[in-house]
Amino acid sequence: MSTRTFRITVRGVFDGLSTDQRAELVARAAQHDPLRAAFTPEGHLSYELAARAAFTFRFQDSGEEEEDILEATERAEEAAKTWLTERGYGYKNLRSKAEDLSQAPLGKRQRRAAAQKHI
């Protein structure tokens, strides 16, 4: 049995941030720049408070079965909630989207590389 790789995106909106919390997030904005976003096992947070109060966590997880994506999504949501709660950041409208990379369509380069293997 092969291992499946899952990418889980957890999105939400900061809610009720104090002036100090907002200043703290703004000070750390370079670490959480959306242009540097990556899917990681521990989760990567990105946001742009100057534009809007929305945030995105990106998680990478794995499993053996297709159904394991549901548990991976739950773990990602809990990790995001824990991170926010531990820091006292209010949030709302939390939603998740998960993708099983073994089911993702191949891009043009990937199709070309696969075709080269069969020649």
Rank of each mutant, 00 (worst) to 15 (best):
S18Q: 01
T19V: 10
A27L: 05
L84Y: 05
G107P: 01
A53H: 07
K108M: 08
S18R: 00
D68Q: 10
K117S: 07
P105T: 12
I8P: 02
E71Y: 08
R4S: 02
Q110P: 00
F59E: 10
E66L: 07
L35T: 12
K92Y: 04
N93T: 08
L70G: 06
G90K: 01
A51R: 12
V13M: 14
H44Q: 06
H118G: 07
G43V: 04
S102A: 13
Y47W: 06
G12S: 01
K117G: 04
D20E: 10
A104S: 10
T82L: 14
G16V: 03
V13N: 12
A50E: 12
R58E: 14
E71D: 12
W83S: 00
R36C: 09
P105K: 07
L101F: 12
Q116N: 10
V26K: 14
G43L: 02
R7T: 09
E74M: 10
A54S: 13
Q103A: 15
Q21S: 03
G12Q: 04
R111W: 06
A38K: 14
T9Q: 11
Y89M: 00
L17V: 03
Q110I: 04
R112P: 03
I69P: 06
T5R: 15
D20K: 09
D15H: 10
Q21V: 00
E78H: 06
R87N: 11
F6D: 03
F57W: 15
R4P: 05
E66D: 13
Q103H: 11
A76I: 01
E48F: 13
R75W: 04
S18W: 03
K81V: 00
T73K: 02
Q31A: 09
T40R: 13
S96E: 07
Y91D: 00
D15F: 06
P34I: 00
I8V: 15
E67Q: 11
Y47F: 13
K92G: 07
K117Q: 12
A72N: 12
S96Y: 02
E99Y: 10
I69D: 10
H44W: 06
A29L: 09
A30D: 11
Q116R: 15
L35V: 05
H32W: 14
A29D: 13
R95V: 06
F57V: 03
H118A: 15
A27D: 11
E99T: 12
K117N: 04
E67C: 05
A30M: 07
F14P: 01
D15M: 02
R95Y: 11
S46G: 09
H32S: 11
Q21A: 00
P34H: 04
L106T: 06
S18E: 02
R36M: 11
T82P: 00
A27R: 14
A29N: 09
D68G: 10
Q103T: 10
K108P: 10
M1P: 07
Q60W: 02
P34K: 04
E66S: 11
F57G: 03
A72G: 09
F6Q: 02
T40H: 12
A37S: 11
G63P: 03
H118F: 12
E64Q: 09
T3F: 14
L94E: 09
A51P: 01
H118Y: 08
V10D: 05
W83V: 03
V10C: 05
E77H: 00
R87L: 02
A50I: 06
R87W: 06
S62G: 14
E86Q: 14
E65A: 09
D68S: 11
R52D: 15
E48V: 03
D68V: 04
